[in-house]
Design a binder for these strands. Structure first.
Lengths: 155, 155
DNA sequence: GTACGACCTCAAGTTAAGTTGAGGTCAAAC
DNA sequence: GTTTGACCTCAACTTAACTTGAGGTCGTAC
């Protein structure tokens, strides 16, 4: 019953809002696995729209492509994923979001203390907890700045 | 009254938890302006500890160095910044944090809807609002994916 | 029959925020 | 008097997530 509703890369781009080059890039990274037609052009299943949408949502939540690959690996092999498959993954997102929100709220509370005193100095303020450092996303090599190091007294 | 309490770069690194190379990098980007001693070594004012702490906090909140430079530009020129100067800046952080938290909460609420239906498809779910897209931080050229484009109906 | 648009590959560029390394100075300690 | 540690400069590398560009293939529309 598989209808001939395969999509060209441009179609998929239009449906997801992604650029064509980004979709090719995702294929190279192993996030989608299109077939090829006679002329070597990519042909995507309709379910890939959802797959790419998932990638976008996951990125919005803060997952790296590497992490997204891991999540996608939890989807079934042979068949196209059904609602309950996506549902399972969504649930882990919820937890992640909760953690992110909690971390920001902690930062906000500490900052409120700082607004009161105007000091903005890490240790004194108790703002700037190393535990939350890891939560900060950034690019390039900026490994675990936090850790076991005690930052020393301040000023 | 300026005591001879100038700090070498290594001292500053120890006090802030930053690496020496990061501090040099910040100088190159114009975030700190140390003096030099006879031998050409950097000598920092004590108030630079706070300045660097500020940078760390701002990064944690999600500002880029470019944005941090802009914030720092609001500090007084001649004198060392006092508590009320930092206080003024802290206040704008609070607003930013509130916006970030609100955006994550919106995403979470929409995701909750998705967990219910298991669909995870953007338009259908109303998850994945372009407005929140801009909030997502990422590196490299990934310009305004959101915008005026309507993504088209789904599946 | 050729111009156009959509597709292809592969290599190289881009950005942010630093890190790493080579090669060199200087002062204090042994 | 040489070794050690802290400092200096400058260039090149790193990572993530893509984009851009050159050079080439198809199929359809005029």
């Amino acid at each position: 019953m598989a209808r001939t509703t395969l999509l060209a890369i441009g179609d998929l781009a239009r449906r997801t809002g992604l650029s064509v080059s980004a979709i090719r890039f995702y294929e190279a990274r192993g996030l989608v696995h299109p077939m090829r037609n006679g002329a070597g052009q990519r042909r995507f299943a309709r379910s890939d729209i959802r797959r790419l949408s998932f990638i976008l949502i996951a990125q919005q939540i803060g997952l790296t492509l590497e992490e997204i690959i891991a999540e996608l690996a939890r989807l079934p092999e042979g068949r196209a994923p059904d609602p309950s498959d996506w549902q399972a993954i969504s649930r882990s997102f919820r937890a992640r979001l909760d953690r992110q929100i909690a971390a920001l709220e902690r930062t906000r509370d500490r900052l409120d203390g700082c607004i009161g005193c105007g000091c903005l100095s890490l240790n004194v303020c108790a703002l700037y907890n190393p535990d939350d450092r890891a939560a900060a996303r950034g690019s390039g090599p900026r490994y675990v700045l936090g850790g076991t190091d005690e930052p020393g007294a301040l000023v």
